[in-house]
Write a protein that binds this DNA or RNA. Structure first.
Lengths: 228, 228
DNA sequence: TTAATTAGTGATCGGACGATAAACAACCGT
DNA sequence: ACGGTTGTTTATCGTCCGATCACTAATTAA
């Protein structure tokens, strides 16, 4: 049980990976481990899963907290490329198509047991990185979606989305997001076809957005202004 | 620091509550404690917050786990009255009004830091009680909403909602739910008026539901059946 | 081959944890 | 006033945790 043959370099009796690869392997496996056990999981259990002894972790990471910070980094920084903003803003294609393609891609990255659990564990800790992630989603994705919706609905372009618009897009976005939560965290039965879920959600959202903000929006805004 | 005057029975120097009240007080305070610290929080810190010593907890609860189970029960069983089903099904009132009133009431119960955090901590543990809660929401609330939507849209009544309908209502429901998560767990800025958020979400949902399932639904169902 | 360097292990420390037992203090019926 | 009952504390046990140190084994450079 204590002797394992090396995965690579099979000729030597003892395994020996390059320091950098070893580090990355540790972080990757630690991510899976903490996703399952939570960040209260012990370093001994983690080391056992890595096939090494516990003190070795402290050669690669000064403390458990530092290891956890690296886990955060890999999880949170993994998904965001800049391709998504361009995709959403490509007005040569119809908006429903862009939204569906974006959410197919976005959920393809974040809909996994690992990602979602780490996300919630860190969220419950109230970590800075979690809040900044929420801010990025709002500024890079949701604001862009609103701009495109306004354009598609023939509404005048505004630099800043209104709070009500932003909230509505949050509700839409969160609804899709929670499909993954139900599937991978609650392990509840969900509609088999993620694509259909997204497609329906996008269609319903666009119809709803037009219905709420299309005609009466200007009137309501005026009313709100009067009351202030 | 170790001597506190009794909250009731002020004439005696030492506090002494009835055993049942004491128990309830412990469970209530423990709920707040675990909501903040997670269930990994220590019994010593909990006892300190209660103003008693740690072994006393073990006179009222056989183990920490039993205490936690009582916390679950109070949190999960607190909200559900049967008034909500009746409210949703009251066809003498317009559906948007019913939905808005229901979600105002429902979120009035679950939108608190305490409730939401306990909910997610137990969800991440994969507890039975959490899954059964999700099942209750689906069967008692979402199914009912679908029935009312079908009726309001003039669609034929069906005994069971389709998977796609159910999913769409889940997305709607989750969108509203996540408003509370953003506010109380991420502590992110949200639209000040919860009522407006709900109102917009309901209006958008109903417009979207009609648009997706209103006219073309029968046609799409036929297509799906052909491909199966 | 050998010396220096690096990767990995065994043993262990102080502290926090859940839980228990025995001593003590407050209450109640008599 | 008193003795039994019950609520509460003090002291402690065994275990697990994060972290450190001294040591061995593997690798590299000369």
């Amino acid at each position: 049980m204590s002797k394992k043959i090396s995965t690579r370099r099979a000729r030597t009796k003892q395994r020996r990976l390059s320091p950098d690869d070893r580090r990355k392997e540790f972080v990757a496996k630690a991510t899976e481990f903490f996703a399952e056990e939570g960040f209260g999981g012990g370093t001994r259990a983690l080391a056992r899963r890595l096939g090494v002894t516990q003190p070795l972790l402290y050669r690669y990471f000064p403390s458990k907290d530092d290891l956890i910070k690296e886990v955060y980094r890999t999880v949170y920084l993994e998904p965001f490329g800049d391709g998504w903003e361009k995709l959403l803003g490509d007005r040569t294609r119809p908006l429903p198509e862009r939204l569906k393609e974006f959410y197919d891609a976005y959920t393809g990255v974040i809909f996994s047991r690992k990602w979602l659990r780490i996300y919630f564990y860190s969220g419950l800790k109230g970590l800075e990185i979690n809040r900044s992630y929420v801010g990025i989603v709002r500024d890079k994705i949701l604001s862009r979606i609103i701009r495109e919706c306004r354009h598609a609905a023939g509404l005048p372009a505004q630099s800043k989305p209104s709070a009500a618009e932003l909230e509505m897009v949050w509700v839409f976005h969160s609804g899709i997001f929670y499909y993954g939560v139900r599937k991978f965290i609650y392990e509840a039965p969900v509609l088999e076809s993620k694509e259909q879920m997204i497609s329906d959600a996008v269609d319903a959202f666009l119809a709803g957005f037009a219905s709420v903000f299309g005609a009466k929006e200007e009137a309501r805004k005026a009313v709100v202004k009067e009351t202030v």
